[in-house]
């Protein structure tokens, strides 16, 4: 028994390899991101799901808890992304229970990379690309801090020193975060939860100004981002009412 849940699953039919002349990978219509703040990492996302120019839903949850100490922010084809998250949830728990120890952080990071690589045929055909952001903390090391990793749709993984974003609305967010990280006072990494929470909502509002696929965040209407924070103690969801309080204090 090696604790590999994927080994238990039957090998399903794979999509055929991309035909010659297949189009480029389509951009991922969403906005998710993560940045370090004073007490850990903030992971946030908008609520909009689109199909072409149609708004499919403005109530989508894109920040998914994989286990008690790791999160995945999904960008890309929802069917594939949600299935990847579900597979990872089962994989991590299966390993923890069968091996009587949690999977290491590096193994979790590689597990997501493996799923993306297995999805290569769909990615190359432009019908199943996923480019997630992974946030986790090594539970075996009492001194470890949460880390942020982002992936390309082919499975390459990159650690982000300060922040990472994915989806069509992420370029503007990454620009703002870079600016704040370089010249901000305070920098996002020094912010307590309240200001960090307000910043996350402001970033999504900024992204929605330039990206039609980003939406569902309207503090004036009581609609806030999906927002979770990860620290050594684990994951905490910041509720809409808590975000409303943060927003009120930040805009007072």
């Amino acid at each position: 028994m090696n604790g590999d849940f994927l080994a238990l699953l039957p090998k399903g039919p794979r999509l055929p390899a991309a035909a010659a002349g297949a189009g480029p990978v389509s951009l991922l219509a969403t906005t998710v991101f993560a940045f370090h703040y004073a007490e850990g990492v903030v992971v946030a996302g908008d609520h909009r799901a689109t199909a072409g120019t149609t708004i499919f839903s403005d109530k989508t949850e894109k920040i998914l808890e994989l286990d008690s100490h790791s999160l995945m922010a999904i960008a890309g084809v929802p069917a594939t992304a949600f299935e990847m998250a579900r597979t990872l949830q089962t994989t991590f728990e299966f390993y923890r229970r069968s091996q009587l120890q949690p999977m290491s952080l590096h193994a979790k990071i590689r597990a997501l990379s493996r799923l993306l690589r297995d999805n290569l045929p769909a990615t190359l055909q432009g019908v199943g690309a996923v480019a997630p952001v992974f946030v986790g903390v090594e539970t075996a090391n009492p001194g470890a801090k949460p880390v942020i990793f982002f992936y390309d749709p082919l499975g390459a993984q990159f650690e982000a020193a300060d922040f990472a974003g994915s989806g069509s609305g992420s370029p503007s967010i990454k620009s703002v975060l870079h600016f704040l990280d370089r010249w901000g006072n305070p920098r996002p990494a020094a912010m307590p939860l309240g200001p960090a929470c307000a910043l996350a909502n402001r970033l999504l509002m900024t992204a929605s100004e330039f990206d039609t696929a980003t939406g569902g965040v309207h503090p004036d209407r009581g609609e806030f981002a999906t927002l979770k924070v990860l620290s050594r103690e684990g994951i905490r969801t910041v509720s809409a009412s808590e975000q409303a309080q943060c927003w009120k204090e930040a805009t007072a």
Partner: peptide, 14 residues
């Protein structure tokens, strides 16, 4: 027995 139970439960859950 533990492994059989864990595998069966996780496959069903998945």
């Amino acid at each position: 027995v533990r492994q059989v139970a864990i595998e069966a439960a996780h496959l069903e859950g998945f």
